[in-house]
Write a protein that binds this DNA or RNA. Structure first.
Lengths: 226, 226
DNA sequence: CGGGATATTGACTCTTATCAATGCCCGTGG
DNA sequence: CCACGGGCATTGATAAGAGTCAATATCCCG
């Protein structure tokens, strides 16, 4: 029988001509609790179905968390930027996989799951509760996007979200390819590309290159994306 | 300026010819911490934008949690059944609204938000963390449904989810109208109706009435919905 | 038993997916 | 320094799935 992890890996190979690197390129302990790890582009940080012994904090780079269907359809639930944490689960098993979008450094912290919570300092548990609640909020907002917004609205919201998370700059450097944006927004990469073209024609953005976007008219984007 | 709460209410009036009842029909304290409340069909339990002073547990009935766009598009993020808790937020403000789908009894527990967590017993915080993580998992699964599944797959998954949560019986009594199912699945009510018809033709379900569904072939539903 | 809300069904439209061709950019090696 | 190659992105033509609008049908609930 195929384990969920094996299935996920199989699917990954459909998405990437070059198979993703397995596991960290390097790791070293940080203080007494953290373990610093480096991952190359598209390297797997953990897989769906894998036992989850850690929570992670992004130091540099970008991480995507996604779920796959047996036929290869993929939904990215979140991108994680430097400073953000990810990887916490109610059970001992990851129910999504995480990969580095670009070369990425993270710190992993040992985490025994909710059951091991007694052993964790109270402030840590409280912090984790807050982070989980914020994650839930973000995911619920994303439900609205996926369930009820059209392609243009989705891309507008995505650009505003990315801008806000990069400190609100008007020039965005997107770490991820069109394919990842599409899988985050529940679209195809062609549709994403067409919506970029449409925003460009409307004069609300300018594309310096495919990955470098100038937001020219935030108000127009907000009118679309909210 | 329209408050978010006022906007939500406006939109509700588009959805229901009869305006929803405001606030509990009755309430009485349970022990020293809980407050029992009753709500009629479509009554609002709390609104988006409202200050959140409580978490809730469903005693009987069904609750829907949803978000609205200014133009009336609605996304239901979850239905809550007896025994389940809902209404916890990272901030002091609800970022979704909750309504009773059918006449519903809940118990409300005072909750000061994450910041007030010190005052809560540790086991309660831990329990809440677990519930929030489970909610996050459910919501992420729902992202995959909304982003990547077709109408038939969505309905199949919905029926299996409902069956599982009603104890796995082969005869389902759906509390919610087609409109709510549609807003949960990111479809229109017409499409939901057509997918019911299609499952019926395939012989995987039988409709005793619109709300009462017999699951004849779970394996077929699983093949579609997973 | 009657009437209003809810659900089904049909005809047609529209958005997005699919399939396919072309273009672009960047890193590598001659 | 320029040419080549490969991944990535854009653009076009067409198809398919779900949405919209509209006409019944059915089911509760009083």
């Amino acid at each position: 029988m195929l384990t969920p992890s094996a299935v996920a890996e199989t699917q990954l190979h459909r998405h990437f001509a070059v198979s993703p690197q397995r596991k960290p390129e390097s790791s070293e302990s940080v203080g007494q609790i953290g373990l610093a790890m480096s991952f190359g582009r598209n390297a797997e940080i953990y897989a769906e179905g894998e036992t989850s012994g850690y929570v992670y904090k992004v130091i540099s780079g970008v991480v995507r968390v996604s779920k796959l269907l047996p036929d290869g359809r993929r939904q990215i639930s979140a991108f994680h930027m430097p400073g953000e944490m990810f990887g916490f689960e109610a059970n001992e098993v990851h129910h999504a996989s995480a990969e580095a979008v670009v070369p990425t450094k993270v710190v992993a912290y040992r985490w025994e799951g909710v059951l091991g919570t007694d052993k964790q300092p109270a402030h840590f548990v409280r912090e984790l509760l807050k982070l989980t609640m914020l994650g839930l909020r973000h995911t619920q907002d994303h439900l609205l996007l996926l369930g009820r917004k059209n392609a243009l609205e989705r891309l507008a919201e995505f650009l505003l979200e990315m801008s806000a998370r990069m400190g609100g700059s008007a020039v965005l450097d997107l770490a991820m390819p069109r394919h990842d944006i599409a899988d985050y927004l529940g679209l195809t990469l062609e549709t994403v590309s067409r919506m970029f073209a449409e925003l460009k024609e409307m004069g609300t953005i300018r594309l310096e290159s495919a990955r470098r976007v100038h937001l020219l008219d935030r108000a127009a984007l907000k009118a679309l994306g909210t």
